[in-house]
Structures are given as structure tokens and as C-alpha cells.
Simulated scan of single mutants.
Amino acid sequence: MNQAQAQFEDEKTRLRQRAFEQRGAIARADWADMAKDAAAHFLEGVPIATGKVVALYWPIRDEIDCKPLLTALVDSGQPVCLPVVLGDGEPLELRLWEEGQPLYPSGFGTLAPAETAPVVEPDIVVIPLLGFDKLGTRLGYGKGYYDRTLARLSKKTLLVGYAFSGQELDFIPRETHDMPLDILVTETGIRKFPVA
């Protein structure tokens, strides 16, 4: 790793620490209402054609809870898939979750459909994040799971960040492999970003 890359990684580490602190400062008493508001904004403002597959996630730690959105989509008959971690350095496997099917622990405190569930390519990817900026750059946990997953998809997907508004950072440096968000959904509304 050269000096410029080392400085870049140091800056990302500092930003992740700040993002964890900001997210951790959001009042837990407000989480449930914020999650419901974010789901309502998503359903009102993100275009989803009938039958298009939406990739969601099972929230961990103090991520905004996307279960209200997950429930609303499944109840409406919209196909939903959830990610499965296959191993370090691997892309995520996105498995279709069909109504009534159980979910199983799949690492990092997440739940996912069974191994027998169909593997699909989503049309919309709702992605958790640590932080975001006004340019639609997202800050993840640094493991690269979503970067690898998005890079291997055979079609362009709509990339939707899902977060608390309090997770905004002033600026996040972006590398060439970092895919910016198309849309950001928080409890306060929706932001759309121009294609980079």
C-alpha cells in the first residue's frame, strides 16, 4: 500500500469512528417512529414496478430498522430478497424470501432465507450504511461485501441508501470502485442524486 492509499484508509477509519458515534447518539426512544417514517417515505417515493425484486437487509447493531418496509413490501406481494454472507472476500448471495418461509441466522447477527431459497438478481438494492454525504457517497463498514456484490450483478440496479438523517457526514472520499447512491431514504424524506 502506497502512502496516498494509506492516508485514504486512515481517513476512512476516522470517518467510520465519527459515523458510529453519530449513529449511536440518535435517541433510541425515537427509533421505532423513525423506522416507520422512513418506510412510508420509501413506499411513497421510490418507484417499484410490480414484480421487480427488492434486496433488503436484516438490521444489526443500531442500523435503522427496515423491517417495517420489509413487511409492507412482502404484504403487497413485491418480491424481496435478503443477503447471505458466504465468507470473507466473497460477494453476498441474495436469496428470495417467500412469505411464510422461516429465516435463519446467517452471520453478523443477521437473518436470511434457507439455503434452498432461490438466488436472484435484484432490481433495487436497499443498502445499510454507516454514513452518507450530500453527493450520495456512502460509507460502509469497510468489509466490501456490497461493493463486490454490486460489481458482479449483470444489470444496473437502483441503489437506495437507508439510514437515519443524523448519519450525514460533511464529505466522504470516494474510490473508483465506490458506487454512489441513486436515492437516499431517511425518516425525514428522500434525496435523489445525479448519476456520477
Rank of each mutant, 00 (worst) to 15 (best):
P47W: 13
Q22Y: 01
Q17F: 07
K12Q: 11
L103A: 12
A117D: 09
D65E: 05
L111H: 04
I48K: 06
G109R: 07
Y104V: 15
E93Y: 10
E115C: 11
F20P: 04
G45Y: 07
D62I: 02
A40E: 15
M34K: 08
V53S: 09
A39L: 10
W58V: 04
Q22E: 03
D88G: 14
P105H: 09
I48W: 06
G107F: 00
R61T: 09
Q78S: 15
E98R: 13
V54N: 01
D75S: 13
P128I: 02
G51T: 12
Q22M: 04
V125Y: 02
D33F: 03
L15F: 01
E9H: 08
V53T: 11
G87L: 15
P83A: 08
A39I: 12
W31G: 01
E90M: 15
V46F: 02
D123K: 05
I26F: 01
K67Q: 15
R23H: 02
R61P: 14
E115Q: 14
V53K: 09
F42H: 06
E115Y: 11
Q22K: 05
V120G: 11
D10K: 15
A114V: 12
P105T: 09
K12R: 15
Y57A: 10
R28C: 06
A19G: 00
F132N: 00
L129D: 00
L69Y: 07
K67H: 14
D75C: 08
Q17I: 06
N2K: 13
G45M: 14
R95G: 10
G131P: 01
D88Q: 12
D123A: 11
R23Y: 01
G89P: 03
A49W: 14
V119A: 14
W31T: 03
F42A: 06
I48R: 12
A35K: 03
A39Y: 10
M34T: 02
A29V: 04
I124Q: 05
T13E: 12
E98K: 11
L15A: 02
W97C: 08
S76Q: 13
L130G: 02
E63P: 04
K67E: 12
A25K: 04
D10F: 07
A55K: 06
W97K: 06
G109E: 05
G24V: 01
T50V: 15
P128L: 04
E93F: 07
E121S: 11
P79L: 07
I124S: 04
R18P: 04
L86A: 07
R18N: 03
V54W: 02
